[in-house]
Design a protein around this nucleic acid. Structure first.
Lengths: 356, 356
DNA sequence: AATTAGCACTTGGAACAAAAGAGTGCTAAT
DNA sequence: ATTAGCACTCTTTTGTTCCAAGTGCTAATT
């Protein structure tokens, strides 16, 4: 009888779906009686009980204690997300809010992501985050300088991912426009386009020779290394942290502490996002991944692509019993819009606000 | 008998001090028996009880319920901080850690503050924050441009407080080096040094005339407004959020939520810090100030001065029963060091790392 | 063979009572 | 002015009972 390609009869699927959704909605364990009363199935509570017992044996459900209803296990949520989830139809209001964001045509990824994480948080009512994953491939493609006074100038570094970093440089000896112009020329010829490993001693020597000021060359190279490090190491922005507290699973205890700690350290989350390849919305339930920190929470995130490369991700974090349908739809839409924005030909529109 | 200039006998002061310190240490209400046993006073528990009753009447102590010991009231903490606190001698290790930070000679305030908030958090074991207060006085003192390609360039804005902001600008029509050089010249002559109110319509008109591209002028001015807004609105960085959770007063409940919410919104905290004038370490206990959000927590922060002006602040946030002696000493030292770093003549040292 | 009604069983939570413990306030003695 | 002593108050803990929820199993039914 019926569809068993993934090992569950249609009825079991229906029951599992009903339990997951009831639990997501109410937060309480779900009993057999509730399922029969919800009229999605025609059989009796005894039948449901038998099926539930089997689902528990198979690992899809758990029982907090003998006389309680069932709650979905992580495997249960996983099956739900992968197989049972129905498309969520976004409301006009939600779509409007996303379009609102899209109108702000910012060209700088950092600021787009920052804004997007706020929107994700406010649309889903979970904690939102935005991330720029690690990528060794980023280099400085161009150097510019701007003289400030006789003892300081600004070094501007344009990275291959489009981001711009600046550094105030204080010099030991007096400098003039000629010096810094020469410096930026030299950097553009010798260092631009190289990554950290490619900047070798010979290159540094020739830079020193070229500008004829070893102290300056030294200082500048230090700054460049630093910026390369920043470009490489990802960034993580979090917004709507306080929303976590409204869910009883975080209301007390150590789970919240682990999450906050993970946000502080950043690296676990960066790893988690950087390691995934799928372009679709990713759902990481509990400690499915090797990342230990997020045991009792779910990460959902969607990569942001620009010209075929993953340049960032936006997502939300919340309890296991997350409103997956809605979150998936929201992030898919939002992330897709952002990727599209990044990829669309930039100069086709009328001359309104082209920047941010 | 004895010192009553602030209305408390010496003995009452001793008792209050003992109670505050015992409570800071243990977190539990303090009873009369504990005080007598701690051997700081020679009188009996009954005497202590009488004194405690009086201290409660005077508003320095509170009783959670009849059969509990006393805990300090906000007024009690206030008196303790203002009058009873003994100098905390920082350990060699703590001083070493601060000196470590000081070695990183960064010239950019943002990055110093960011780092400093982390150090403050790790030294005190409370949540650290760093802030750049609002200040209407900041203007853009200088504009630079860097051409990227025929349709985009980077606008660099150097602010009067030394910070540097950049904006990617996408243009509708093709541009060349000549265009952007002319643009920066025009901006430097017409707009540099003005604050948002001073940029009037006539000025914008003459800019438009000067560069002869109204769409470009428009886009650029939008970016400038935006940056002026950013420079004006303060920044708030928080680190060590997870440390809050180790204190039982935040272990559950809404207080934590209010704090997290305040960190999200930022404005209450910015107001709080921006409104204070004292250069010393400030201690805001509970809702002493008009800021409602932080009812059951203490803010301690020290302003950072550069050339006589307050350019930032670093501080920590924690429960009312905070280790005030230690926090005050740490922030005073740390903040003082940073201010000194910002003010010291910058070019006197040997040619080692002058930047960051 | 699958479903279902019925019932015994398990368990956590609520309600209540009693006891223990901590600390006070007051009185009377020093 | 201080202090010993004690009655009093209030929270916390512990134990008991009771109840409701929900299960698993068995026997009857389709």
């Amino acid at each position: 009888m019926s569809n068993r390609i993934d090992g569950l009869s249609d009825r079991k699927k229906l029951i599992l779906k009903a339990i997951v959704e009831a639990h997501i909605q109410g937060g309480e364990p779900v009993g057999s009686k509730y399922i029969t009363e919800s009229k999605q199935l025609t059989c009796s509570s005894a039948t449901i009980r038998n099926e539930m017992a089997e689902l528990e044996n198979m690992g899809y459900l758990e029982q907090p204690h003998t006389s309680a209803g069932r709650i979905p296990s992580k495997q249960g949520y996983r099956f739900y997300v992968d197989t049972l989830l129905e498309e969520y139809a976004m409301t006009a209001k939600e779509i409007a809010q996303i379009n609102q964001l899209m109108k702000i045509k910012m060209s700088e990824l950092d600021r787009i992501l920052d804004k997007a994480s706020k929107v994700a948080s406010s649309l889903t009512n979970y904690t939102g985050f935005a991330i720029k994953p690690r990528s060794r491939a980023v280099t400085v493609t161009r150097f510019e300088t701007a003289l400030i006074d006789s003892r300081s100038f600004i070094l501007i570094l344009v990275a291959s991912d489009g981001s711009v970093k600046t550094r105030n440089i204080l010099t030991d000896s007096a400098i003039d426009l000629h010096t810094v112009t020469g410096l930026s020329q030299a950097l553009n010829e010798l260092v631009a386009g190289l990554d950290a490993e490619e900047i070798t001693l010979p290159i540094m020597m020739s830079l020193e020779n070229r500008i004829g000021d070893s102290a300056l060359a030294n200082t500048v190279m230090k700054s460049i290394y630093e910026v390369l490090g920043e470009l490489d190491g990802g960034e993580l922005k979090v917004s709507g942290l306080d929303r976590l507290l409204q869910y009883p699973e975080f209301s007390d205890s150590s789970d919240l502490g682990e999450l906050l700690g993970a946000f502080e350290r950043k690296d676990e989350i960066l790893d988690l996002v950087s390691d995934t390849e799928s372009d679709r919305v990713n759902v990481v339930i509990g400690s499915e991944s090797s990342v230990k920190v997020i045991n009792n929470s779910t990460f959902v995130f969607k990569p942001i692509k620009s010209k075929g490369k993953t340049v960032g991700a936006i997502g939300v974090i919340g309890p296991l019993r997350m409103d997956y349908a809605r979150v998936l739809a929201t992030l898919d839409n939002l992330g897709g819009n952002i990727s599209q924005l990044l990829n669309e030909p930039k100069h086709t529109e009328k001359g309104d606000n082209h920047d941010g």
